[in-house]
Design a protein around this nucleic acid. Structure first.
Lengths: 208, 208
DNA sequence: ACCTGAACACCGTTCAAGT
DNA sequence: ACCTGAACACCGTTCAAGT
């Protein structure tokens, strides 16, 4: 360790900081301190703070790539890919939501898209439909994992009674009809599997 | 206009600021200036900046609600709801992505969820499956609209040649096979409609 | 060539002070 | 009761200066 300052070392430090203390703690000054330098020394390597965040997104994509080789038929590989995407969200909850806000244009991003394209072609989806279904799949998986780590689902669903209590029952008639099922705790792994099964059937139908 | 300072007036100003100059321009000081007061005067009304952002999310949800009455059968109402969600994203591109990161616990959020629940019940989905399919639908629609306004789709897809050029062709074989279709411009309205049709079939299958 | 220090124009938030 | 001013501990970024 000769303490060489590199773009890689800076991105490592920024990702660690985001994992440990949240995205809000990722300031140029804090990242710089972690690599033992002043904030201004980072600029030649990362350009700007925006570019640094883009670099983090690329890091995440690069780290799912090994999980996208997989074996088995396309159904099995798709399920594995979905699980990899969710696992990534749990490892990097603060950084993960950025995947939905920044365009997938880096080499590693293109590789991931290509992996999904291959899968859909193997499934027999007409080539014309492949780009659309890739966007449908990736949007759902990224959105679901983002919702999970951001608490969009759990916060409200874990307390359905409190939720309904905010409103007169006649204003939320469907909640009342579903009361029995809304009180059950949700198995998120099982729900995601069920969603993937539904999407697999959607793909099979597009292929037919 | 007696210049009364209210929570509503503050949220109005913040949303305008976000629409005109982006979420980054929404500082306590800038919002305060717009309502003609100092930053500290806002605190009794909004609590903190985080709470102010939650207030903005609620504002967006409140503004889609009128569009969720709708007529026709559940298929037509679902399509209308999806279009309303996309239109909202185009009106408030900076604020919209917050919908995926903050739990839907406010009264208006619960009303929107209840509207989707009703739709799925009318479609004949077994009550046990309704909450899961609500999350599948809302996640996809929010994720798709977020991706559109954030440029996750268009940036890369509008320039497919540049995209493939970054990598040796043998590393992205599926891109090569799809070259003919990737060069076509995408009709995003039509694509979203096709996605909704696929999701409607998915729901019909769950109801069968 | 690579890094630093000082500076500029900002942040969110606390708190005593004003009216 | 409601708002302000000054202050604290921060930001991202520029730029001249150091080695």
């Amino acid at each position: 360790m000769y303490n060489v300052l590199t773009r890689e070392a800076i991105l490592d430090a920024a990702l660690e900081l985001a994992d440990e203390r949240g995205l809000g703690a990722v300031s140029m000054r804090a990242v710089a301190q972690r690599v033992g330098v002043t904030a201004m020394a980072l600029y030649p390597y990362v350009g700007s703070k925006e570019a640094l965040l883009d670099g983090l997104v690329d890091r995440l994509l690069a780290s799912v790539l090994p999980d996208t080789v997989g074996d088995g038929d396309w159904r099995e590989r798709l399920r594995q890919g979905g699980q990899a995407a969710r696992a990534l969200a749990r490892r990097h909850p603060s950084t993960y939501p950025l995947l939905l806000s920044r365009p997938a244009v880096t080499p590693d991003a293109v590789r991931v898209v290509d992996w999904i394209y291959s899968l859909l072609l193997e499934a027999g989806v007409p080539p014309r439909e492949v780009p659309r279904l890739e966007r449908l799949l990736s949007t759902f998986v990224l959105g679901y994992a983002t919702s999970e780590v951001n608490g969009r689902f759990s916060e409200g669903t874990l307390n359905p009674r409190a939720r309904r209590a905010q409103l007169p029952a006649d204003q939320v008639p469907a909640h009342r009809r579903l009361a029995k099922w809304l009180d059950d705790p949700v198995d998120w792994d099982a729900e995601f599997e069920a969603d993937m099964d539904d999407l697999i059937r959607l793909i099979e139908r597009a292929a037919a």
